[in-house]
Every structure is written in C-alpha cells, then in structure tokens.
C-alpha cells in the first residue's frame, strides 16, 4: 500500500523523511539531563512535548475509538482503567473516548497551570512537581497502552508505525531515565517494550 510511486520526486522525499526517523539518533542519549542543567526545567519541557505528541497520536485514530468499539477504557482483557476525579468520586469505568477526553483535558489544565509549570524565569517549581509529573506521565502511558493494544491495525493501515514507535521509544527512555513511571504501570506493554527498546 505504498502512497507514492517509487522513482517520483514525492517518493524520494518521502523516503528521506522516513530515514530521519531512525537515522543515527540515540534517543536514549538525547533524554539524559545535560550536566549542570536544571532537572525540573528539563522534565517540564519534555512533559509538554510528550503531551502534544501523544495527543496527536490519539487524534489520528480517534475516529475508530468510539463508545461502541471501546465501551471500557482498557489495555487488552487484563487491564482496565477507571477514572476518578472530583466529579467521579469513586473510580468509575468509562468508555475509552470519554476517558481520553477527561485525561487530555486534565493534563492540559496541569501543564497550563503557572503554579505547577512556571514559565517565568526565576519562579521555582512547586515541591510536588515531580509527583504531579508522575501522574501525568502514567496517564499518558495509558494512551499508548490503549492505542497499541486496540488500535494498532489502524496505525499500521496509515503507515505510521515507525512514527508511533519512535515516539514511544523516546517517551519510554525518558520515563526510565528519571524513574517517572512505576514498573507496575508499564506492565501491559512490557513484552513489546523489551523487543523495541534496548
């Protein structure tokens, strides 16, 4: 299902662009905190970036992630995620699209909160910053879980496996580097991760 005919300029460009996804890039190295730099600022800029990218990933498959197809937010038969917040006081089973909406919404509020993610030079990060970041990243990880387990066919059909994989690797190396997600939470994609990320 090649989009562009080989030999055409479009195809050449496409090939070149694809290559940049793998070319000599050691994502593991790239996520390390450069010596002397502030850890919180380093983490913050990554969190915002990952949020944007994961949101984009979900945005490409959300047409087939519906109340009907995914009545519960899950990662395969073994994992089911429940939502809890001020409105849903008890952990509540929601459909995947509902859950995703609440999740993205919630993260957006967090990262735009100046008290949590200050953008003025000199304003310190709050004491609980890394705590909040862990929550954000754990929730973002669930998007990967759901997309990989339930919607990978769609990703493949669009020809964007390499793109999603690269994003996942980057994300994974990052959370590992700074121990930002519990091993337990990483469980659902453990096997895939061990194949993909060395």
């Amino acid at each position: 299902k090649r989009k562009f005919e080989p030999g055409t300029q479009r195809f050449e460009l496409h090939k070149k662009a694809q290559a940049s996804l793998n070319a000599g890039l050691d994502l593991k190295l790239v996520v390390q905190l450069p010596p002397g730099e502030d850890l919180h600022d380093w983490v913050a800029v990554h969190v915002v970036d990952f949020f944007n990218r994961v949101n984009l990933i979900y945005g490409t498959i959300n047409d087939c992630c519906t109340e009907k197809s995914c009545p519960v937010m899950s990662g395969g038969p073994k994992y089911e995620y429940r939502w809890q917040d001020e409105k849903y006081r008890k952990p509540t089973a929601l459909s995947a699209p509902q859950y995703m909406n609440l999740l993205m919404d919630w993260i957006e509020v967090q990262i735009n909160n100046e008290d949590l993610f200050p953008t003025n030079i000199g304003t310190p990060f709050p004491k609980n910053f890394l705590q909040v970041v862990k929550k954000i990243l754990s929730r973002l990880f669930r998007v990967f879980v759901h997309v990989y387990i339930h919607h990978f066919d769609r990703i493949a059909q669009m020809g964007s496996e390499a793109h999603v994989n690269t994003c996942y690797k980057h994300f994974y190396y990052f959370v590992k580097e700074f121990s930002l997600i519990d091993t337990k939470e990483l469980e659902p994609l453990k096997e895939m991760t061990s194949r993909m990320c060395h």
Partner: peptide
C-alpha cells in the same frame, strides 16, 4: 471534546520534522 482528529499525513509530517 478537546481531542480533535488529525489526518495521518499531518501526524507523520509533524513527527518527521519533530525528530529532526
């Protein structure tokens, strides 16, 4: 809903540039 749909083309385009 805050989640908007994106075309696969747009997504790929963005990701390629982003990695660069």
């Amino acid at each position: 809903s805050r989640i908007k749909s994106y075309s696969p083309f747009a997504f790929k385009f963005y990701m390629e540039q982003h990695v660069e």
